[in-house]
Amino acid sequence: MTAAGVVFTPKSPPERLREVARAAEAAGFAQLWLWEDCFYEGGLTSATAALAWTERIEVGVGLLPVPLRNPALAAMEIATVARMFPGRFRPALGHGNLEWMEQAGARVSSPMTLLREYTTAVRDLLHGRTVDVEGRYVRLSDVTLDWPPASPPPVIVGGRGPKTVRLAGEIGDGVLLDAGFALDKVRDVFATAAEGRTAAGRGDPFDNVVFVELDPTSADLAAQMDESIATLSGIGADTVVFHGAEPSFDPEPLIAAWETRGT
């Protein structure tokens, strides 16, 4: 069954997160997603707060830009959140906007190499493994988490291009595609991720996540949501996440529409 979620974008002030998270849960959404866009709101702090304010809803961060954090620190933070809220945290890793990474003094010359090394290290640490690696960017010496999660959260990889998407299938637990792409592109992304999994000989669970942008002023939001889920699940989506269009990005009309579906 396809899971449905809604996005609280960092265009909204962080003090609104509590009411939105609780409303999304009350409306019956399975997931609430956050963005860590530069230079707005911290994804891990926001996710922890949203999880603490709610009881059931899963919270994802799509995505955490890998150049901004040491992978050992990222694994520590993710593990802590996952242990405090078992089964409810869904972190996604990705390149981040390269211009923003430049602004932050964190841009690297080979984002693909960094993402591969970083995702592998973080996932290994979350699974309780000792990481001893001397890579181009990731250098960890005999690092083991003292408090790995009993049930490691899925490490999802965000991407658009075929190399990143294939990497997601090869080493990640899911792929995240942002909004605005035609169905053929979405289908290609899922197929490319599947190719990566086949090449790596993987048969473990994998989550195809896609964001969908909707106009929050539309009169038929609920119908658009149902149609999007039906269409996207038909081409392989496991999770469909809705967010409001510019300029407001307001999630509240989406939450209200979801709550009144079928009434």
Rank of each mutant, 00 (worst) to 15 (best):
G180K: 14
R187E: 14
R160A: 10
A150V: 08
A199I: 08
R160H: 07
V189K: 08
P205E: 13
A182E: 11
T231S: 12
A191P: 02
T164W: 06
F211L: 15
V131P: 08
S233D: 12
V209I: 10
V189S: 07
W258P: 02
V143M: 12
G234N: 04
H243K: 15
L232A: 08
K185C: 00
P247R: 05
G174C: 12
A199L: 06
S233H: 14
D173Y: 11
A150E: 15
D142T: 10
T164R: 04
L145E: 09
A222H: 06
G135Q: 02
F206M: 07
L167P: 09
D204T: 14
P154R: 15
K185I: 12
R202C: 05
D207S: 10
D220S: 11
T164H: 03
A191F: 01
E195M: 04
V157K: 10
H243M: 12
D204N: 00
D250T: 07
V210A: 09
T263H: 07
E195L: 10
T192G: 00
G172I: 05
V131Y: 11
V241C: 05
A219C: 05
E213W: 01
F211V: 01
P253Y: 10
R166N: 05
L183G: 03
V240G: 10
P149R: 03
L167Y: 08
D226Q: 09
A194C: 00
S248G: 14
A179L: 03
A219T: 05
P148F: 12
D146V: 04
G159D: 04
D178W: 14
T144Y: 01
G174A: 09
P153Q: 13
G161F: 11
I235P: 15
L232W: 08
A150G: 13
A194F: 01
T217I: 03
A182F: 00
A200L: 10
G172V: 02
R166P: 06
F211E: 14
A237M: 06
Q224C: 09
D220C: 06
R197C: 04
P216Q: 08
P149E: 02
K185P: 00
D204F: 10
A194W: 00
V138I: 05
P153S: 01
W258T: 02
P152Y: 08
A194Y: 00
A193Y: 03
Q224T: 03
S141Q: 07
D226R: 15
L167F: 13
A222F: 13
F211S: 09
A199D: 11
